[in-house]
């Protein structure tokens, strides 16, 4: 099966800035790495990881040096006789190696506390973009309550601004993780968690569910697309005024197929009679980069593959296999869905 982030940039993706694409091609390898932070939250976390690491490395070097010296210096040699001095202890030494770790840990714990409280702060208010993230088996729903937008698989945020997240789950535990932007926070059914993140610059930051959530856990991915504030505003504008009218004859046929197969009982398409809530909201599907928990590239071909054989890509997904759908119906359906703007 094809994976996302394939670099075949296509003209359809005009909704995403060219800059994003460039950033993507430049560092796709590190896009999901906690070692290449792209925002203040992940930067702060990396700072603490590093601080802890250097302290630990220091201790490790001491231990290994003492160990190595002992092994070489005090190894048994031919002709050794008698016993070495039977030293049973040394209170001063023992107190020393109790106190020194305490001091080192005290050094570590101060910034730890500070960062723990700082990262737990919340900001509400009209000026802060609020996103409600809902984990589903196996896709992510992103709601923008202030903006009246519901989307899936990709979260658009303005770069350089703090974004406040509320995390929920529709079924089991999931964990929301965009390594380059922020550490993870679990989505717990029956509970709302909060976190915030910020992308310092526009770019595409892949994320993934980090808490085991069932058979296709490994396919539960998503992208965070950070855009310049103006591009973000344009995206919001487009999403608030979705164009759901089929433009071609084939697309008109596709809309009928969509209705005929009952797709609308699970999926919502804004501005139509399709208002199902089980699966992802499909409004503006044509502008998205990926499909199906970001496990597929958004191409008409992959879309048809997904509709006809979803369980091959994502075993046990709620999405049924429409394997009996005729080829022409499939093509019509993909034309309709890819035409949603």
């Amino acid at each position: 099966m094809k994976r996302r982030l394939h670099l075949g940039v296509r003209a359809r993706l005009a909704g995403v800035t060219l800059l994003t694409m460039l950033a993507l091609s430049a560092c796709a390898q590190h896009a999901q790495s906690a070692l290449h932070p792209a925002g203040p939250v992940s930067q702060a976390e990396l700072g603490l990881m590093g601080f802890g690491f250097w302290i630990m490395l220091g201790v490790f070097v001491v231990v290994v040096a003492v160990l190595g010296y002992s092994l070489v210096r005090f190894r048994e040699r031919r002709g050794d006789q008698g016993l070495p001095p039977q030293v049973e202890g040394n209170h001063r030494l023992e107190i020393a190696w109790t106190l020194i770790p305490i001091v080192l840990l005290a050094l570590l714990i101060v910034p730890t506390f500070r960062a723990t409280f700082a990262l737990a702060q919340q900001q509400r208010g009209p000026g802060v973009v609020q996103v409600t993230v809902v984990g589903h088996q196996w896709w992510w729903e992103f709601d923008y309550p202030q903006l009246g937008i519901v989307t899936a698989d990709e979260m658009h945020i303005p770069a350089g601004e703090r974004v406040q997240l509320t995390l929920r789950s529709a079924d089991v535990l999931h964990s929301f993780w965009v390594p380059a932007l922020a550490g993870k926070e679990d989505t717990v059914p029956g509970q709302s968690n909060t976190m915030y993140l910020e992308a310092a610059r526009p770019g595409l930051y892949p994320g993934q569910c980090a808490e085991f959530c069932g058979v296709s856990h490994s396919e539960m991915r998503f992208d965070v697309i950070a855009q310049t504030p103006s591009a973000f505003a344009a995206w919001v504008q487009a999403r608030q005024h979705p164009d759901s009218t089929p433009a071609t004859a084939q697309a008109v046929q596709g809309e009928k197929v969509f209705a005929q197969y009952g797709c609308g009982s699970c999926h919502t398409i804004d501005g139509t009679q399709f208002q199902g809530k089980v699966g992802p909201n499909l409004s503006g599907l044509g502008t998205r980069l990926t499909l199906a928990g970001a496990s597929l590239q958004n191409t008409p071909k992959d879309l048809r593959l997904w509709v006809s054989d979803a369980h091959k890509i994502m075993p046990s997904t709620v999405m049924p296999n429409f394997s009996t759908m005729s080829s022409s119906d499939l093509h019509a359906l993909s034309a309709y869905l890819e035409g949603l703007k």
């Binding site: 976390e45 990881m49 231990v63 723990t116 993870k184």
Partner: peptide, 23 residues
């Protein structure tokens, strides 16, 4: 064990653990 113990201390730092946990 020293290596394991030390990564353990690193994991005990909550903000760092947000990245380490479940990875």
């Amino acid at each position: 064990f020293v290596i394991g113990g030390m990564s353990g201390v690193m994991l005990a730092v909550p903000p760092a653990d947000y990245q380490f946990n479940d990875s």
